[in-house]
């Protein structure tokens, strides 16, 4: 496994830029009222989904959370159709029924973001169970925040996966905050890896650095594919913004927010690529311009797309 190829490195950069810019754009359109409901962005956390999903094929599974745009993008979701869903439009992945907290794309193994904290963890574990049952060699990934590890669903899933040696990678993005409260309200341990060790699941804690994450994820995905069972990776990331867009973060204080924003996994990676000459300044500019245009196009597509008809509402509940 080891280090990524130059091509992969550039691709990872592109995807991180795509997540960052998509989230920024979403914040903008949300503030204008084009998107309703709740919007949770993942700015500051782009490294984890990209480092992990770089090892996955379309056939592999991922189940995520309310903060799930980044994972969907990293797993290759079609941006136009995803935007349409976020805008609640007819061509959206979920027919405009569900919005940001429920993005799903079956064709790429994206089993859904989730409105229920911890809800996706046993579901991803079930996907791993199915892969093992059918001997398909697929791997499942479950992503969640540190807050979710307080739920019984997390513990029940890990215990089962360990007993059955299921092909799954648990990725905990520990951004230090769960909604409006810090880590210390949620657990007395320093690292979520301690939880995994209790189930005899190997676990590592890595910095918010895409190459480190890539390396650890590579080993974990390989272990899962070889039939050696689950791994947990904790990524120590940063939540730049409020829990949801519009959250004034009075509970957190300005300095803490500013401090978080000084830790920029995208900028760090960009610097590294420039320093190692993997990319030149003009390549970076070009990539950013291309992605910017792609996002603009997706937003325009979503805007133009009609809302679902009211008569559609009653369709599809049962087969």
């Amino acid at each position: 496994m080891g280090k990524p190829s130059k091509e992969t490195m550039v691709k990872m950069y592109r995807t991180m830029v795509k997540i960052r810019k998509a989230e920024e754009k979403l914040m903008e359109v949300f503030s204008k009222g084009d998107i309703l409901g709740f919007l949770h962005v993942s700015i500051g956390q782009e490294a984890a989904p990209v480092g992990i999903c770089s090892h996955l094929a379309d056939a592999d599974y991922i189940a995520t959370t309310h903060r799930g745009h980044g994972h969907a993008i990293a797993k290759g979701i079609d941006l136009k159709l995803a935007m349409a869903e976020l805008f609640g439009k007819k061509d959206g992945y979920c027919l405009g029924r569900s919005g940001s907290m429920h993005l799903a794309d079956k064709s790429r193994g994206i089993m859904g973001a989730n409105g229920i904290v911890g809800g996706g963890i046993p579901i991803a574990t079930g996907a791993a169970f199915a892969a093992k049952y059918r001997k398909t060699n697929q791997v499942a990934v479950s992503t969640f925040g540190e807050g979710a590890t307080g739920e019984g669903a997390f513990h029940e899933a890990l215990n089962f996966a360990a007993i059955k040696k299921l092909p799954i990678v648990y990725v905990c993005e520990n951004n230090g905050w769960a909604e409006f409260s810090p880590h210390s309200i949620h657990m007395s341990i320093q690292s979520v890896t301690q939880r995994a060790l209790a189930y005899d699941i190997p676990a590592v804690s890595v910095a918010n650095n895409v190459l480190e994450i890539y390396e650890e994820a590579g080993k974990a995905v390989e272990r899962a594919r070889q039939g050696d069972g689950p791994t947990l990776i904790e990524v120590r990331s940063e939540r730049w913004h409020g829990h949801y867009v519009g959250d004034a973060q009075k509970y957190r204080g300005k300095e803490k927010v500013e401090q978080a924003m000084t830790k920029d996994c995208l900028l760090d990676y960009e610097k590294e690529l420039l320093q190692t000459n993997t990319l030149k300044k003009k390549d970076v500019e070009k990539i950013n311009a291309e992605i910017g245009a792609e996002i603009e196009e997706a937003v325009n597509f979503a805007r133009e797309c009609p809302y679902p008809e009211v008569s559609e509402m009653m369709k599809g509940l049962y087969l």
């Binding site: 029924r97 429920h102 679902p308 009211v310 509402m313």
Partner: peptide, 14 residues
């Protein structure tokens, strides 16, 4: 409400 899950974009009709 109609006998389906609550709708995001069609909430006002739901």
């Amino acid at each position: 409400a109609p006998f389906v899950p609550a709708s995001y974009s069609l909430e006002k009709y739901y």
